[in-house]
């Protein structure tokens, strides 16, 4: 919640700053979409505007679905997404006379987390699948204490959930007793307050309040991301092949010393 409010405040203050300080002929750029990609884009935008003072960029969150919807409707130049575009969305964009072009900008691991007091260190993919399908109900079945497992998951429409469903559940469903949380931050909050809980979050959201477990013996970190079993790419979509200032920004984003360095700073894995 806090994050969202901050983002709105930033968007508003940026809009005002833009109003007062930009020269009259400023070029404009709109970025919208996934809150997972937002922290990267936020910093990239700040640095980019330092480098090109006559470009005016407004950026806002709202979720992958909303970002891609804005690309379809033509209300944004760049959409951030934590999942790949769906076939039906491409079809609708083409109907509206535009073709969304994907750019992978970072790699992210989705890491199972437990309460810091939980002795469990490793969970295999099979164990995770059974936990999330309600077949394993007690921590003692996976080498922990004799406590009920409280399963925390993301909303079924979040990009993070979709990756989890594909990689861990192999297309199966999370059982109805799982507590669905609306954001990475809410999962951290729920797991850090509950000794029985297990959840999953993006790599950059790990902090001292929760304990990440290894999966199939692989630890999640910037260096091991490629070998980690549950990973995904983060995307930016443009309307057609980028041109003008959009192209400039995408180049900046993918530059190993500029955008990709920010990616690493925020805690994701750079692509280049």
């Amino acid at each position: 919640m806090k994050g969202k409010i901050l983002i709105y405040l930033m968007a508003v203050s940026m809009a005002f700053a833009g109003l007062f300080f930009s020269p009259a002929m400023a070029e404009k750029l709109e970025i919208k979409g996934s809150t997972t990609v937002l922290p990267v884009a936020q910093q990239a935008v700040e640095k980019f505007m330092d480098a090109y003072p006559d470009v005016q960029i407004s950026i806002s969150g709202g979720g992958s679905g909303n970002g891609i919807k804005a690309i379809i409707d033509g209300t944004t130049d760049i959409a951030m997404a934590s999942r790949f575009i769906k076939q039906e969305e491409v079809a609708r964009a083409v109907e509206n006379g535009t073709y969304p072009v994907p750019f992978a900008i970072a790699l992210d691991c989705i890491v199972p987390v437990v309460h810091p007091s939980n002795p469990v260190k490793d969970l295999s993919l099979a164990q995770l699948k059974n936990i999330y399908q309600g077949k394993i109900k007690n921590w003692s079945e996976v080498g922990g204490e004799d406590r009920r497992i409280v399963v925390v998951s993301r909303d079924t429409s979040s990009g993070t959930y979709e990756v989890w469903e594909e990689k861990v559940l192999e297309g199966g469903r999370v059982f109805p007793g799982a507590m669905l949380q609306a954001s990475n931050g809410a999962v951290v909050q729920a797991v850090s307050n509950n000794k029985n809980a297990v959840g999953y979050i993006g790599l950059s959201y790990i902090n001292k309040d929760v304990k990440p477990t290894t999966v199939n013996g692989v630890e999640a970190s910037l260096d091991t991301a490629a070998a980690f079993p549950v990973s995904r790419s983060l995307f930016m979509f443009t309307r057609g092949w980028p041109q003008g200032v959009t192209l400039k920004f995408m180049n900046y984003m993918q530059h190993p010393d500029k955008g990709q360095k920010i990616v690493a700073d925020v805690g994701y894995v750079p692509m280049y």
């Binding site: 992958s64 679905g65 919807k69 969305e89 429409s157 979040s158 609306a182």
Partner: peptide
């Protein structure tokens, strides 16, 4: 003491990520 998911919570949590004009 079971966790539940009332209607408004579902709408608020899922609307942002639901693909536009989809069944969801």
């Amino acid at each position: 003491f079971d966790p539940v998911r009332p209607m408004p919570a579902s709408i608020a949590a899922e609307m942002a990520e639901a693909p536009f004009q989809s069944a969801h």
